[in-house]
Design a protein around this nucleic acid. Structure first.
Lengths: 296, 296
DNA sequence: TAGATTGTTAATCGATTAACAATC
DNA sequence: TAGATTGTTAATCGATTAACAATC
């Protein structure tokens, strides 16, 4: 099902996802320049302000069209408008926020929304104790009103800030009512029909990624054996098979779970405390590491 | 400065970033299985639970080692532990949260932290009205204490939930005090020295990306000319040059800014309201679109 | 042994980057 | 004209995916 190329390249429909994800960064940087009444900006300057490299920025802009002037740079105002239009921010997007806990409150108050064409059409919650209170100057309404609000206000974007257990159900109702884009803050994988977009923001995942890199920093100085396979996994077939079997045999789930981080080297590593900035927090992982931490 | 390959492939140091970013997803799915005491899981099942495809999952796991058993699947408990260890979650990570507004509160209360080895070491705020109050059972302390807390508690991860204007300054202090990983919720590009990791969570950017796709859905049905270059931009050099010059000449910044979305077709499009789910919200973008929306 | 499932290969796709001709 | 800067090319890198041999 290839699209028919129009000229050299089809272009018409396809702005790469990676580029789309950076457009808001450019837009923010440009808006700041605009507020300072800066008339033009070079790819080099703008890239620095947006935190990307200039080749990437120019490539990104090339997907939108030729909006710059060689030898001069880009007209700030013109570019603000073009990017806004490309992102769909020149129209008004009513949004519902479902789940008005701390995070829902934070979002309702978030300044970056209104300034970008997003308008909070309603705040919804299932808890009668919360319904009727107000956040960011808007009343919190009951979930029962979800369908009527989405329909009457033509809401196409929903934000889910409920507890994880409620997220899928809320999602289903939103979709059923006509919402086709969902921003999900609940730590749940949502299932949606084709044609519905879901984006996920997960606070804990971001921290986990940081922890991964932080851990690497700690043991970094020499080319330590960190991350190397164990001998078992490099061994010829039968040995590996035996090792795997052993691992599987090791635990009737629950038992193994409780003991998982509390035996052998794992315990030792844990006891050494966090951080250890610039110092080796754990001994370089040795050959028998992997088997040593197996549930006993 | 290439690393010396050990065998076929160096492997030791390099788990691809894309894989690292998915490990927390697998971990979450596995934790759920573990709580249901499911002993083993196939790549197909686990992939479905994590919302990825199974080939990708197997490829991801292959970077960690050979933890599965052919014909059987993966041992849930064992895999939970291996991924936790790989991510650095078997150690304790004290974290400071700076800026205790709604979002700071939400994070302080976020359950996903504690369960993953993250421990809130302190909540900090600059506002005397907030200092002394408590959130999630912890006292909010004054920014003045930042350095002493980071140093005494060996904090290596900082979370910034301040207003954008304060973010860089807070970041500088965190880094100076010894923090080497920062999770930034403020809509600001942070500058940090080498060796410091910054990850950014931007609520407004996610919504903007959704709006982009939502906009596409609305005008989707026929292969409309949407996104096509204007004749001017496809025209031979001199004409394009003239067009660009015209654009640049169009506005002494402020003037252009005020008028930017308020003239010609842009205004018309804006007036048509949001959504238009399944119906063409805007007329198919025509040839002269781009010039029509230029600041007049 | 037969059925199931992993781990790996290789092809493909998409994103990044440096370099530079085109053009102001 | 000379200096500056864009827009594009092409090389490179990294991620995804289907397919399947290896192995339980």
């Amino acid at each position: 099902m290839r699209r028919t190329p129009v000229g050299r390249q089809t272009r018409a429909r396809g702005i790469p996802e990676a580029t789309v994800a950076r457009l808001p960064l450019y837009l923010r940087a440009l808006t700041a320049l605009s507020e300072r009444s800066v008339p033009t900006v070079s790819s080099e300057e703008l890239a620095a302000a947006a935190g990307v490299n200039s080749a990437k920025l120019r490539k990104d802009f090339s997907y939108l069209g030729s909006y710059g002037t060689r030898g001069v740079g880009y007209d700030v105002e013109y570019l603000v408008y073009q990017i806004s239009r490309e992102l769909g921010l020149t129209q008004d997007w009513p949004v519902v926020i479902v789940g008005i806990g701390n995070l829902g409150h934070a979002l309702a108050n978030y300044g970056g929304f209104a300034s970008r064409g997003f308008r909070v059409a309603a705040l919804l919650d299932a808890d009668p104790a919360v319904v009727g209170s107000s956040a960011a100057g808007l009343p919190v309404r009951h979930m029962d009103e979800l369908e009527s609000i989405v329909e009457s206000q033509q809401v196409s974007i929903g934000v889910i800030t409920t507890p994880p257990g409620a997220a899928q159900q809320v999602c289903d109702r939103l979709v059923e009512a006509g919402v086709t884009s969902i921003l999900n803050f609940a730590p749940t994988v949502l299932t949606v029909p084709d044609g519905v977009d879901v984006r996920k923001v997960d606070l804990s995942i971001e921290l986990q990624i940081l922890a991964f890199h932080e851990q690497r920093k700690a043991g970094e100085e020499p080319e330590s054996g960190r991350g190397e396979e164990s001998v078992l996994d490099r061994a010829p077939g039968p040995v590996r098979a035996a090792a795997a079997k052993l691992r599987r045999a090791a635990g009737g789930a629950k038992d193994a779970k409780d003991g998982k981080a509390e035996s052998g080297k794992a315990e030792a590593a844990k006891g050494q405390g966090a951080k250890a900035q610039g110092a080796r927090a754990e001994q370089p992982r040795g050959e028998s590491e992997r088997s040593a931490v197996m549930p006993a």
